[in-house]
């Protein structure tokens, strides 16, 4: 297992002495081979806190997170012998609103900033930059431009390219598609699927879009009130009765199917994944 959470709890300190509990007793295992995980849950349920534990940006208050064999506990940073930085190359984390991390004069310099920090040679980093900029749906012309003259969506893609150029084994993205138009969103999700399939890397995405969960994910993790309440297949999740309680909703296609079942008073043999499958099912029934 690449990442292993063992009874992890985490509280944010606050001024009045009461602590705000963001994670409570989380147990989770993530492999770095071929998983496509979506992490869902209402705002404030601890999703972002959870992913910040995955590359040792935060340390648990109790319990431990083991990342590539390095055990992270409450007092880990006091031990100078443990280098946390290499972990951050292996687990690439793209923050929500990554456009704020841009700071260099050109897009190229910003993309190679990450790889160079991890000791990649400059020409190798430039080679990677030329490759990843195409992956995120931009052209090489962008490399010479200033990141601050780009639109919000383009900035977001550049910052994702900056993480991709680090060539992490596990790619974690905190709401990567928020603020993007539908076309850009689909392109980005296709990109992640490609990375997932071709390079057999693990992708973890925080999202609020159930369609993304249903269409792309091989595994779904649900957070609710700082607790991990579901970990399993997306298909099974949407059969679960608790999804109302967890403030989740159904993907469009399942919503339609359920409506149809209720209106026509029939039961389909399985849940469809897209319109075509639904059409086939309808033909079978009628």
């Amino acid at each position: 297992m690449a990442i292993k959470f063992e009874q992890v709890s985490f509280q944010y300190p606050s001024f009045d002495g009461k602590n705000f509990s963001a994670l409570e007793n989380i147990n989770l295992e993530i492999s770095d081979k071929g998983e496509f995980i979506t992490l869902i849950g209402e705002t404030g349920s601890g999703k972002s806190t959870l992913v910040q534990h995955m590359n040792a940006l935060l340390r648990p208050n109790t319990g431990s997170v083991t990342i590539y064999g390095i055990k992270i506990e409450k007092n880990t940073n006091k031990n100078k012998k443990i280098k946390l930085n290499p972990l951050r190359q292996k687990v690439g984390l793209v923050f929500q609103f990554p456009e704020y991390q841009l700071f260099e004069e050109t897009v190229l310099k910003d993309i190679i900033f990450g790889p160079k920090n991890f000791g990649v040679k400059e020409d190798e980093a430039i080679k990677r930059a030329k490759e990843v900029i195409k992956h995120v749906g931009l052209t090489e012309d962008y490399l010479g431009r200033s990141p601050f003259n780009l639109s919000g969506g383009e900035q977001k893609r550049v910052s994702i390219a900056g993480i991709l150029a680090m060539e992490p084994d596990i790619l974690v993205l905190d709401e990567p598609t928020s603020g993007l138009d539908p076309k850009g969103r689909d392109a980005l999700l296709e990109l992640f699927t490609n990375i997932h399939k071709k390079l057999n890397k693990t992708i973890i995405i925080i999202t609020h879009d159930m369609n993304t969960v249903y269409k792309y994910a091989s595994r779904v993790v649900v957070m609710h009130d700082a607790k991990l309440v579901y970990d399993g297949l997306p298909n099974m999740l949407f059969m679960d009765e608790n999804i109302e309680k967890w403030n989740l909703d159904l993907p469009d296609i399942i919503g339609i199917t359920k409506q149809l079942e209720a209106k026509l008073d029939i039961t389909f043999t399985k849940k469809p994944h897209n319109v075509n499958e639904l059409f086939e099912l309808m033909k079978g029934v009628l």
């Binding site: 590359n55 930085n85 951050r88 923050f95 704020y100 991390q101 900033f113």
Partner: peptide
């Protein structure tokens, strides 16, 4: 937040030589 984001890109705010420190602060 920005410190965390840059830390994810390999910036180590706790250590480094003077040249690295300048880069860290600029970032």
């Amino acid at each position: 937040k920005i410190m965390l984001a840059q830390a994810s890109r390999g910036v180590d705010f706790t250590e480094g030589k003077f040249k690295d420190k300048v880069m860290q602060i600029i970032s």
